[in-house]
């Protein structure tokens, strides 16, 4: 379709430049992370001429990122599990089972997609404080679950609605209960979507700063991304340290992306295609 020869390259070159622009900020950050604070103040943009892990060690140890990684992991895993369980159950019910009020409920949940977190921020923390979950892992897991559940249900419902109703019907004729159908049919069938939706949600939770910052008041409970942001406080001019923290925080996510690239990219597409 695309003519061979010069035409291809006329498009390929700008696209290669764009690819470079996509990678540049991270390379830039990597460069800054190699400098000492003094080198950065004296020459902010120059290329570094040495490789050093000093800032990484400092960020990891003295700034406590090592404990924050644990918090981020606990909270991310907890929230993703909750999201997948709740999301797949609801997605199954909304797509394959008809019951009174299902449309209204689905609409109610989907309308929550349109509520920016700031809109409910003030009362939200009042509620969380009221049930004693402020500054706890469970509280943050709950916060993430409520934040990303509408999106998860949206994707799971559209994924499950591609499964022909006849399959569910046949299972029922064979004597399966609704719960049995969910456990033995829908969960295995939903695996591709669950994997990719799970990874996407893990990304969202891992990368969040705002909700974690306000939920976790004490230092011991802080998440990695909040800890990294704190390295770049108003009262810190140690930008290389911050850059090192950025690299540390992005590393697990990048690895996750490299390993699960196909699943991630497949997953966002649930519901986008004609199936």
């Amino acid at each position: 379709m695309l003519s061979r020869g010069p035409g291809r390259w006329a498009i390929a070159i700008p696209m290669a430049l764009l690819a470079l622009a996509t990678l540049y900020p991270l390379l830039f950050t990597l460069n800054v992370s190699q400098k000492t604070r003094r080198e950065y103040v004296l020459d902010r943009l120059g290329l570094t001429d040495r490789l050093s892990l000093d800032n990484f060690v400092a960020a990891w140890q003295t700034s406590g990122l090592n404990t924050y990684v644990l918090n981020s992991t606990i909270v991310t895993v907890g929230a993703v599990v909750a999201l997948l369980v709740l999301g797949s159950m609801a997605g199954f019910a909304f797509s394959q089972l008809r019951f009174r009020g299902s449309r209204v409920l689905l609409l109610l949940i989907l309308s929550a997609l349109l509520i920016p977190f700031q809109v409910i921020m003030v009362p939200f923390f009042r509620i969380l404080g009221g049930i004693g979950l402020l500054d706890t892992h469970l509280g943050l897991i709950l916060a993430y679950t409520s934040q990303f559940l509408p999106f998860t249900i949206f994707l799971m419902t559209s994924y499950y609605s591609r499964i022909p109703g006849e399959i569910v019907e046949a299972a029922r004729v064979d004597g399966s209960s609704t719960l049995g159908i969910y456990l033995r049919l829908m969960l295995p069938l939903g695996r591709p979507a669950l994997l990719s939706v799970g990874i996407l949600n893990a990304l969202f939770c891992w990368n969040d700063v705002l909700i974690a910052l306000l939920t976790m008041q004490s230092q011991d409970n802080r998440t990695l991304m909040v800890g990294v942001t704190a390295l770049r406080g108003q009262y810190s001019d140690n930008i290389p340290l911050f850059a090192s923290g950025v690299v540390i925080a992005a590393l697990p996510v990048l690895l996750l992306y490299l390993f699960f690239q196909k699943q991630i990219t497949d997953g966002v597409t649930a519901g986008a295609t004609k199936g």
Binding site: L86, M89, A90, L108, I109, A143, S146, I153, T178, Y182
Partner: peptide, 14 residues
């Protein structure tokens, strides 16, 4: 099946 999801969304969003 939908109750837990609805509960979370209603309690913490609505």
């Amino acid at each position: 099946l939908v109750a837990p999801a609805v509960l979370v969304v209603v309690a913490l969003r609505i």
